[in-house]
């Protein structure tokens, strides 16, 4: 026997018999994909939602629940039955230095930074430059 590996395929095939990627495992992959797919939807609703959030913080700082009820009153239902997403978004906005937060009475109060206020002004004007700015922000925040 010249090549000691001649029988390898046959040998391994036998060993791998019954060792397969189960349906449960496949479903777990599909599940993850589905949850990742719902993410790009962020793109579609964010422009209005983002403006609403920033707008609601213009006069005073608010905590998350307050923001969410206010959005609800404005008939902004992007976060309906998915309230957690709001906090993710708030967190991202904080990271982008659009918002800043302080803790008081065990609640986190969000308010606009100077940069955030500029965004609100930009949103109101809706010029081509501003809307590019906003789009950029949305894209960054969706990552």
């Amino acid at each position: 026997m010249d090549d000691p590996f001649d029988n390898l395929k046959h040998s391994m095939k036998k060993d791998f018999e019954g060792f397969s990627f189960s349906e449960e495992r496949k479903n777990a992959v599909k599940e993850t994909i589905r949850s990742k797919q719902s993410h790009p939807e962020l793109h579609s609703w964010k422009e209005e939602t983002l403006i609403s959030i920033l707008d609601s913080l213009q006069d005073a700082s608010k905590h998350g629940y307050d923001i969410s009820t206010q959005l609800f009153r404005k008939n902004e239902r992007s976060f309906e039955s998915n309230e957690g997403q709001l906090y993710t978004l708030l967190h991202l906005l904080e990271n982008k230095k659009i918002l800043t937060s302080t803790w008081s009475d065990d609640r986190k109060y969000y308010s606009l930074t100077t940069k955030g206020k500029k965004y609100v002004v930009a949103c109101k004007h809706r010029g081509p430059q501003q809307s590019a700015l906003l789009k950029n922000l949305i894209e960054e925040a969706s990552l």
């Binding site: 994909i33 589905r34 797919q37």
Partner: peptide, 22 residues
């Protein structure tokens, strides 16, 4: 088409997941 990527991955798993596992 974004919707069909899930199908593609499903197909890829049906075709190759055992090979990949090994």
């Amino acid at each position: 088409n974004i919707e069909n990527t899930e199908q593609i991955i499903g197909q890829l798993m049906d075709d190759y997941s055992d090979d990949v596992l090994h």
